[in-house]
Structure formats: C-alpha cells, structure tokens
Design a protein around this nucleic acid. Sequence first.
DNA 1: CAGTATCCTCCGAGATACTG
DNA 2: CAGTATCTCGGAGGATACTG
Lengths: 123, 123
Amino acid sequence: MAGEPMDEYEYIADCQTRLGLDVLSGTWTGVVLWSLQHGPLRPGELRERIGGISHKVLTETLRRLERDGLVVRRRYAEAPPRVEYELTPPGRGMLEPLAALGRWTERYADEVLDTRDRAPGER
Amino acid sequence: MAGEPMDEYEYIADCQTRLGLDVLSGTWTGVVLWSLQHGPLRPGELRERIGGISHKVLTETLRRLERDGLVVRRRYAEAPPRVEYELTPPGRGMLEPLAALGRWTERYADEVLDTRDRAPGER
DNA sequence: CAGTATCCTCCGAGATACTG
DNA sequence: CAGTATCTCGGAGGATACTG
C-alpha cells in the first residue's frame, strides 16, 4: 500500500482503465450509483436525493447502468405498482473507486477550484 | 478499513464525488493522466502511447487538465523548442482513483461486457 | 513537432407533453 | 409515479489545413 505506489499501478493496462471510465461516463452516472449505496430506491426517491436531475436523464442513466449490469430493476406487482433500483455486485464494486474519487476531492477541491478560477478566460 | 465498508463511504457528501467526476470528464482525460504516471512526456509521445486520440482533442484535454491544476506544461528554450507535460500533486493524487477503477475493470470486465452484449438492441 | 482555427457530426442533457 | 416520445441546444470529438 505504501512504499512504491507507482509500482502498484503499473500492472494495469491502459485499456483496463478505459472500460471503467466508459461505464462511469455521463454526468449523473456516478452520483446515481453513489445514491444507491445504502440500498434500493424508487426513482422518485432517487430524484429527491440527487436533486437537479431531470426525469428523462435519470431514466436514461438507469437504463445504461442496467444494460451494463451495475443495477437491477425490480418491479413489484402491488397496487399501485412499485419500482425499485438496486446495486448488483459490480455496482457495489464501483463504490470503492467512487470513494477514492471522493477522498481525492476532499483533499484537492480547494486547490482545484482555486486554480480553475484563476485560469484566464474563466469557465 | 475492513468490516463495514459502507460506513466508510458515508461521510462523503454527494457534491464531493461530483468535482472528481467533473475533472475526469472527457473521453480521454483519465487515459492521459494514467499515461503520465511514470513521468513527463512530450505531446507526441503521449499520442503514441494513447493511440487513437486526435491531435486537437489531446491539446484540449491537456488544456483542461492544466486549467484544473492536474498537469503542468513545461517549455524548454532549446533548439528546437521542446514541450513536456507533467503531473502535479493533485494529478498524481488522481492515480489512486484511477487505479481503483482499473481494479474494478480487471474484476468485472468480462461480466459487464457479457451483460452489455446480451442487452436488447445492442449498442 | 506543437498549437490554433475551421468545419462538421453526433450524442448527452434539458424541457415539455403524453401514455400506463 | 414510472416511462416514453419529441424537440432543441451546446459541447465534445474527429478531420483537415494552416501558423510558429
């Protein structure tokens, strides 16, 4: 873990990282996974917790995650019918990379935002 | 560290993850950072190692990374002039999340690709 | 070789309205 | 409430040609 961190990264081929990045692509994908970490949620609940995501985009994001097998859709034949989304093992496995991203942000957010604001032309 | 992984994630606010995802956004951003892990490279070398990235997009990606302070541009007044890009501390800090993503892929790639291929409508 | 400037295409994301 | 169908818009990414 400590010592020579660089060596630890070495064995991972470039293409290995790419699939992960690809699966995470999309503005809301990571946030949706993150929001599901504590258990299944209904789409409405997801929208509340996330905030700012449109109905359509949430559906699209969930479809992609479902297609890639990171999430399962559960439909309960009640009255009224209920729908829930839940993380699969691959989906739960993505929580660690996301947590690493969170730790990175916690540590460097100020610095990054500062650098970004000073950038010529702004954003 | 072990035991209750879920609790470990808990303290990270949603917005914390988002900046990291935002910085990593862009098809090639992660790959570029990853390619710089062993030291500074010239743009030409970067293109060789990465493969498939266009001249323009590489430049744009590097500009964004520079703006966010993950990379520095070094220009050497030689003849002919030489340019190199190098990771900054925040940039090097991003290697761990990327490595986590690589480990995820190593573990779940087959499963994901399989699920994806079986998906109706393909992609 | 590094960088910029156009031009073009395509997809992601938002808004809105409609169907089960 | 969940999901789909349109429409629009902007930005990302590719190709190409031109400038230091």
